[in-house]
Design a protein around this nucleic acid. Structure first.
Length: 414
RNA sequence: GGGCCGGUAGCUCAGUGGUAGAGCAUCUGACUUUUAAUCAGGUGGUCGCGGGUUCGAUCCCCGCCCGGCUCACCA
């Protein structure tokens, strides 16, 4: 901006500008002595006024509370924030494109459900006035997507929000984005292979490579390890007396090493305590106990286990998949088992969903299904320590009276 | 919910039982040079909120609010 290159009124306007004002300029492009691209201004147009003090340019805005509450200010002050959300958009676009290429149909199923299910979680409850009924914000789309499989939509996927009424942490936001996909005539082995392909391609599309920096770790999405849950317990056992596979299979051994009351729950408990934080590189853990898998098909050789797996990376669960249980009578028994757990005080146990049973009674083909947490995958691919860094408006406690309306009123009266 | 840490100017941060500080931003003047940072001067604070101790509290004590990390819970 040079005084002799612009009209007098433009220059006096320029002198009234504050940091953060939005202006339009006309002129020619040039490079400054330091090589920065700039505009030699010949005409100046005022577009919008910034009334607030701006964060300091050098440090940016570091107060995390303000960054999350006033994301608009975070975006203005910290350019890398916009970058993270661009990467998030690439993650979603990559998944979507990969499913479309594989012949999956994208669908949208109810977020407000009269019965909730498909996961172990407490729901948010709301109310519909005209019907005068309670509705639950969904904790998962699973049971609706499988109704579609029963109806002959052989490959479906949905990318949408789930809502779980539970604690908030660096890895949990009460609403989060879940990708779920189901493929008829596939099983959990097929889903494992598909998962490896999907993750590798998403890493490529979002970051340009399959090896990703995460904190001081390097995660390689080009290869995913696979362990049975019992193998993982033997492999990653902390401390002396590493168990043998024989012991890991023995219900008495399992119950001796856990407070839980069933062998299956004990195995999961031991796994979580000994293995979870060791699963830094992308890893598939498979064969989950039937007690914790009410919607998964039992293993043909070992009825205590199900054909189910989870994907871990950086010690964090990012996906959950199984061969879907498609026997309506066995599903009835599983629901009844869940009802018993509910009566014993498990608030997260499944409800009986009779319409889902009815759908299975029409014959659901053998199906592989999976859910992948979009937020968590995005954390890994944007090197974010907290899920709040990949959710534009994470849930925070309301801050109370801001006083800006009063401030504006007083300003306009002057 | 437990533990630890934090909340001081618009932003980034110092600080002390005795009138509250710096840098940047903002304002005034000079400069027309450039990519956080030209010079000089000025404005700016219920020190998160409420009690208590004290002659006196931003500081010490208690309670509360908001946030962060972490454990628990939870996928």
């Amino acid at each position: 901006m040079k005084k002799d290159a612009v009209e007098e009124k433009d220059y006096s306007l320029y002198q009234l500008l504050d940091l953060g004002d939005v202006i339009g300029v006309e002129g020619y492009l040039f490079r400054t002595r330091t090589g920065e691209l700039s505009v030699h201004v010949e005409r100046l147009t005022f577009l919008s006024k910034n009334l607030m003090g701006m964060p300091e340019k050098y440090h940016g805005l570091e107060d995390v509370e303000i960054r999350y509450r006033q994301r608009y200010l975070d975006l203005i002050a910290n350019p890398e924030v916009q970058k993270a959300f661009e990467t998030r958009a690439k993650v979603v676009a990559s998944f979507r494109r990969q499913f479309q290429e594989r012949g999956y149909i994208e669908v949208e199923t109810p977020m407000m459900q009269p019965l909730y299910g498909g996961a172990a979680a407490r729901p948010f409850v709301t109310h519909h006035n005209t019907l005068d009924i309670a509705l639950y914000m969904r904790i998962a789309p699973e049971l609706y997507l499988k109704r579609l499989i029963a109806g002959g939509m052989e490959r479906v996927f949905e990318i949408n929000r789930n809502f779980r009424n539970e604690g908030i942490s660096t890895r949990h936001n009460p609403e989060f984005t879940m990708l779920e996909f189901y493929q008829a005539y596939a099983d959990y082995r097929d889903m494992m292979d598909l998962t490896c392909e999907l993750l590798k391609q998403v890493a490529l599309d979002a970051t340009g490579g399959t090896v990703v920096e995460y904190g001081d770790l390097q995660l390689d999405f080009g290869q995913v390890r696979r362990f049975k849950m019992r193998e993982a317990v033997c492999e990653f056992w902390k401390g002396p007396e590493r168990p043998t596979m024989e012991e890991a299979r023995d219900p008495r051994w399992l119950l001796r090493h856990s407070e839980k009351t069933t062998a299956g729950e004990a195995l999961v408990d031991i796994f979580e305590r000994h293995c979870e934080d060791a699963l830094v590189q992308p890893t598939i853990i498979y064969e989950y106990p039937v007690e914790v898998s009410p919607l998964a098909k039992q293993n043909a050789d070992d009825p205590a286990m199900t054909d189910r797996f989870e994907v871990y990376a950086a010690g964090m669960e990012i996906g959950n998949a199984f061969t879907e249980l498609n026997d309506p009578d066995e599903q009835r028994r599983r629901f009844e088992m869940q009802l018993t757990m509910r009566e014993k005080g498990d608030e997260e146990a499944h409800q009986m969903d009779e319409d889902y049973l009815r759908a299975l009674c029409y014959g659901m083909p053998p199906t592989g299904g999976e859910g992948i947490g979009i937020d968590r995958v995005t954390m890994l691919l944007t090197n974010s320590k907290s899920i709040r860094d990949v959710i534009l408006f994470p849930l925070l406690r309301p801050e109370g009276e801001i006083g800006i309306a009063q401030w504006l009123r007083e300003a306009s009266e002057k």
